[in-house]
């Protein structure tokens, strides 16, 4: 391709892009017409107006629909892998086998490191939690549309950007730590976990805050037509991926550390064993 042809092609491409941008600005954004930025942001946090009907039974936040969708997809993938991939595992792993083994090995390793005494259940829990948080956060990138009860089409957010989802995750994780301690060390183990009573709230709000901030920035960027080009690649995709990784890592580390603390055998038992 000669230099002249390259220059002409670039010019044509720039003209088409400029024409499209002008057209978009002149025609206006539908978001600006229906809801103000204030309403959009408020709705992203509180979901007061943007509720979705769950099978016509109750009205729920879009985050719950996202949670169900993500779980359904993950369960289907797990079933496919269980039926078609896992039985064909060999001593020399293939690509999918290697990926699965690395994933399971990673979470088993984290669980063993932080909770050396009892880690089988903790390993399974942090594996599931990390998969859910990671894929749940990435889910918002697909922009799957849903219709609210008011008839407005919205893009489904990350399940944990919903305060209810984050609270559920935080309290469930705390419950695992609490009952892990109870089953392994009795009341003493449970009391160890109970002294960190602020843990479920901190875990819930950490998740909610981190994912909500990402959701708000994305909403803000997509609200205005001019910022809807190029910028979302950085803000939307990279921030979402970072959130997905960081939040998964933070939650599983916290859960495994506190689980290890509550399931740690008491020193008296060790002394008795030694004697």
């Amino acid at each position: 391709m000669s230099k002249k042809t390259k220059a002409v092609s670039s010019l044509v491409f720039a003209l088409i892009a400029a024409a499209l941008i002008i057209g978009i600005i002149l025609t206006g954004s539908p978001g600006e017409k229906e809801e103000s930025i204030k309403e959009v942001m408020r709705d992203a946090v509180l979901h007061e107006t943007g509720k979705i009907s769950l099978f016509g039974i109750i009205q729920v936040n879009p985050g719950l629909i996202s949670a169900f969708t993500v779980s359904a997809v993950l369960i289907i993938i797990a079933i496919i892998l269980r039926i078609f991939v896992i039985p064909k595992f060999t001593l020399k792993p293939g690509k999918i086998q290697y990926l699965l083994e690395r994933g399971v090995g990673l979470f088993t390793g984290i669980a063993k490191e932080n909770s050396p005494d009892h880690n089988i259940f903790a390993g399974g829990y942090i594996f599931a939690a990390a998969v859910y948080i990671f894929f749940g956060t990435i889910f918002e990138l697909f922009g799957i549309q849903a219709q609210t009860v008011r008839g407005i089409s919205i893009s489904l957010p990350a399940p944990l950007a919903d305060i209810n989802g984050a609270i559920a995750m935080g309290f469930l994780s705390y419950g695992i730590i609490l009952f892990g301690g109870l089953f392994t060390n009795g009341i003493k183990g449970m009391l160890k976990a109970l002294k960190d009573f602020s843990l479920p709230i901190s875990m819930s709000f950490r998740l909610f805050g981190a994912l909500l901030s990402g959701a708000l920035v994305t909403e803000l960027v997509y609200y205005y037509a001019l910022t809807s080009y190029v910028l979302p690649v950085l803000v939307g995709v990279l921030f979402t991926l970072l959130h997905a990784l960081i939040q998964s890592y933070v939650l599983i580390t916290l859960v495994s550390i506190f689980y290890g603390e509550s399931t740690e055998p008491s020193k008296k038992k060790e002394k008795r064993k030694k004697s």
Binding site: V60, I75, L100
Partner: peptide
């Protein structure tokens, strides 16, 4: 903050099912 206990419980149920499936099918 529009916290809804019913939805919290629904989220919990959703994750418990997902955890069970991932634990027994994959992990």
């Amino acid at each position: 903050l529009n916290i809804d206990i019913q939805q919290v419980l629904l989220h919990m149920l959703n994750f418990v099912i997902l955890f069970a499936a991932l634990y027994f099918l994959l992990y």
